[in-house]
Design a binder for these strands. Structure first.
Lengths: 340, 340
DNA sequence: GCTGGCACTCGGTAGCATCGAGTGCCAGAG
DNA sequence: CTCTGGCACTCGATGCTACCGAGTGCCAGC
């Protein structure tokens, strides 16, 4: 463990480096940390901190920069939990008061909100589809040989699947009339309402071959399209994120990662699974994110964990600020989604 | 108009500059253009081309770079229409054969496809909502005081709107039962099916105060949320785009623009309205895109223009290649959406 | 254990010479 | 009139040197 002065020095280095992106020298620390010792003493302590892995020197005779371990210590022990700037708090509140429309759009906007608040990239992973239950299911005829299955899930999402009735075998060769569609809807609703989305059971035979064939198609489409459908990912604020890095190559890599929805979902899930709220550098588990840090938080609907939000920025990010933003937005989002 | 040799020289400069991003000198032109004259002659012609505004010199004693006018001439008169590389054609075909699932996901994937094909940013603007007609409308009860209106539109989109039944005045104070929901659905369907999305008329009174109140709420939500809802925008391939620029600042600006859905919609629409297929630099109408070029194409559903796709890249983009990609994807997408 | 002092390091900047890709122009040939 | 070879000139890029200064490590003394 670090003694008090070393901790104060480490904090000063981290805070100043976050602010300026320049290596921090002992004189700066003396000026900004409040410790009442000479720069020589600070130098000695900084050498120790370097040996112990909290700091490093880009080159001999330059100032010090925090290492991953240094940031970690800062986050765990030194960062005083910040509250949002007043103006940001207002922005968050009014955002969730005005939020309306479809879930997807709201989540997309939330990712942008996170980006705005933090100046990094905001990420929102949509409610996991596997845990939800079916609240309503309906078949809508579009044409004699085409229909749509519309499923309303307990998390408020609406899924739709196109059915090509010509795939339904001989029973459907002649097209399907209104009343058979209605009968199929009733049958599907009776058997599937309330069951979980991931475990859609087959609907038993009814005696009407046409209805059975439609139900069969519907169930099949739900299974094929739904079970393994990746969770939706929304990313906002990439241009602000680009402002936080000064190497074009890094920006490219981060953009590349944010484009791969599956990777993003896995990334957030992994970090949360390891019980982390903040993942710094290699803690993210991704090589390309060595210079980055990720702040994550789950959000809830009706008291159950539904999805996650996060912020991806440079390792030298303003942790207290960003953590506050993620926490507040997560809470507000949970509340908003729960009350409907 | 340019004589033949000057045109050949201009083409050589444009092609080489697109390839190398380096100013092109007269010697290079002689080597690559096929014109059988000395470099001195080429120099004279290049000086003329510069006076006429097709080329410019970054500094005295450097090679020449195409101007906006130069690119424009190249696109209009010199670029031989390319066909897709064989492997790309295969990729497009198999993409549209495998495309499935919801419209939104497909459009998102299409934007990514465009990005992959061209190495620039792919943009897809969803089918305009105002022109579509309502194919089916349904009210789904979620709770005694909450319901969902689900609307299926002729373009295959599904809209959903939350209704807070406590907003419905005294008639709904006691909650709404199953059968009243069903009656509302029937009433809405009878009056609204077939009408255009943008012109949703009020449903006349039925005598049942509860049903009328629900219908009223539903109609109101359709009007409020739908009429001015901006078209959806999908962007893919931003990381590849970042690779095409070498100035971090440019990347940031382009990212910033691509994040603003409304701006992107307007941008594509404006360019198409001016009858352009390619907008270079200031032709885009946006200052920040001075170093960029945009290729656009509308796509159709059932023979009617439904939305647009495009590619945004550097002004020194591979026009023939990118134009071919946009054209092919536009056609395929139209076909795919039309056949359903 | 802390401090002032001091020698040392090394990245960054400025100045300067050099190189070379490229230009403009001109006089002469076709 | 057009093209060409030749030539002087420009100017960014590259490399070298010198120097500055922020910063370090270490040591002797309080």
């Amino acid at each position: 463990m670090l003694d008090e002065r070393k901790a104060a020095i480490l904090r000063a280095v981290v805070e100043e480096y976050i602010d300026t992106a320049q290596p921090v020298g002992s004189a700066h620390v003396v000026r900004s940390s409040g410790v009442q010792v000479s720069s020589a003493t600070v130098r000695n302590d900084m050498a120790t901190l370097e040996q112990e892995g909290y700091l490093r020197q880009p080159h001999t005779s330059a100032g010090r920069i925090p290492t991953e371990k240094g940031y970690r210590f800062f986050v765990d022990n030194l960062g005083e939990p910040a509250t949002l700037r007043r103006s940001d708090a207002v922005q968050v509140r009014s955002f969730f008061e005005q939020a309306h429309g479809e879930l997807e759009r709201m989540l997309q906007d939330t990712s942008r909100l996170l980006g705005d608040l933090t100046s990094y990239a905001g990420v929102v992973v949509g409610p996991a589809v596997t845990e939800t239950t079916i609240r309503s299911i309906q078949v809508v005829g579009l044409a004699p040989t085409a229909a749509l299955v519309v499923v309303v899930l307990s998390n408020g999402t609406v899924e739709k699947h196109h059915l090509d009735l010509t795939d339904g075998g001989p029973a459907l060769a002649g097209g399907v009339g209104e009343e058979r569609i209605a009968a199929s809807t009733a049958r599907l609703a009776a058997h599937l309402n309330g069951s979980t989305r991931s475990a859609v059971a087959a609907v038993p035979a009814s005696g009407d071959a046409v209805v059975d064939a439609v139900c069969e198609l519907a169930v099949r489409s739900l299974r094929a399209d739904g079970g393994d459908e990746p969770d939706q990912v929304f990313v906002g604020g990439t241009s602000r994120m680009a402002r936080a890095f000064d190497a074009l190559e890094t920006v490219r890599e981060v953009l590349g990662i944010l484009e791969q929805q599956y990777v993003v979902v896995t990334l957030l899930r992994d970090v949360l699974d390891r019980g982390l709220q903040v993942a710094i550098g290699t803690e993210t588990g991704m090589e390309n994110l060595a210079d980055c840090a990720l702040i994550v938080s789950p959000y809830e609907v009706d008291g159950e964990t539904a999805g996650s939000i996060g912020v991806l920025g440079p390792a030298r990010m303003d942790y207290p600020q960003a953590m506050a933003a993620v926490a507040v937005v997560g809470n507000r989002l949970s509340r908003r989604l729960t009350e409907g």
